[in-house]
Design a protein around this nucleic acid. Structure first.
Lengths: 204, 204
DNA sequence: AGATTAAGCGCACGATCGTACGTTATGCAA
DNA sequence: TTGCATAACGTACGATCGTGCGCTTAATCT
């Protein structure tokens, strides 16, 4: 069918392309996502695909955007009603590790994938990535400082160090599963997070 | 100069190509390493470059090989004389974090880069990567079990969980530096490692 | 000295990359 | 009903991808 001017249908097309891009990127990396292969997957012409985004970079940016919005929904939204401070932090860690273990992409967690892919490059994707990660870091910091204020965590807690630790552990879940077949990866990460934060271990 | 049949000179050429490949890969990813760009860097013709390796995959494998041999030299070799168990483990963590913070590649730690790039793909590079990582994991496990046997670590230490934590923390040093400009990344990682292992913190 | 080996070059190939153009077909507003 | 905006198409472009082939040239061996 050539040319349906329904804006709604177009939006659906757009979404399906971005979803396909995310799926493909999770397996082979964002760079390997090509207009041609994408067109093949969604059964469209190359020009039909690129036409939705004008340029490939726009598509990449929207792909990264999808990843962060997914993350926000699956992790942040589920814990935002918890009381600030340590309870919410631990709930976040729980949801976070669970997300990383099953992010809904065929090739593992795309967020960490993109992180390691574009950490050392310049450009809009790098910027978008940085923005998304900083948002999450900020919420972690907020709960950490709150936990210190309430006395749940010691006064001399090095917040930046803890944030680093949490991000590390979450980021290694996906490669541990994919590379070493470590099915306990999420548990390892969660237990590590409790150690990093400094709360006693606990069977969940 | 066209055609010098000195095997020694050829080996040097080969090395320079692999080194250039590693440098480039650390910035833009192993996939972005292209015969053409490589040829430009080392001032050779495309056919001269590919001729050294017959196929691009061979070049990729040798690049990964270089990374692991570098790692082995910079980390493993410097700690192998330490007494087995906890002392060597902590020394390894020290050398490891230091390596990750300054791996000698312009775009950060190539080992973690490749890890996240090829964890979910099939093929020879994946296999080579897995082999290299497993070697290192094995030495970590050895020192951990030794530390348990000597009583330096508690009997119920979950070794796999600790190994996971150490790898996580080391792997996040490079992105933390590149993405967030975190110059304290190596310190964060080292402190985290001590927490994961379960030994008291200590200023180094 | 002559023969052999191999490093590196130049060139060409088929494929695929991202993008631009003009065309066709459709839905919506006037 | 007519006209306009636009989704999607087909086609084509210049670049670049990895690789193969034949040649030149220099080092090594007999």
């Amino acid at each position: 069918m050539a040319g349906r001017a329904s804006a709604q249908a177009a939006l659906e097309t757009r979404r399906s392309v971005v979803k396909a891009a995310a799926d493909l990127a999770s397996v082979e990396g964002l760079d390997s996502v090509t207009i041609g292969r994408l067109a093949e997957i969604v059964q469209m012409s190359k020009s039909g695909v690129i036409g939705q985004f004008r340029t490939k970079e726009t598509l990449q940016l929207e792909t990264v955007g999808l990843v962060f919005s997914d993350f926000r929904t699956r992790v942040w939204e589920t814990v935002k009603r918890f009381p600030r401070g340590l309870p919410r932090l631990l709930a976040a860690c729980d949801a976070w590790t669970e997300y990383a273990a099953d992010p809904g992409y065929p090739g593992g967690c795309l967020m960490t994938q993109v992180t390691y892919d574009y950490d050392g490059r310049d450009g809009a994707v790098h910027e978008r990535l940085l923005e998304g990660r900083n948002q999450w870091r900020e919420t972690l910091r907020a709960d950490l400082t709150a936990a210190v204020e309430t006395g749940d965590l010691p006064e001399d807690t090095d917040i930046e160090s803890v944030v680093f630790g949490l991000e590390s552990l979450a980021s290694f879940i996906s490669p541990a599963r994919l590379l070493h077949g470590d099915t306990r990866a999420a548990d390892h990460a969660y237990r590590g997070m409790r150690r990093i934060i400094g709360v006693p271990e606990e069977v969940r």
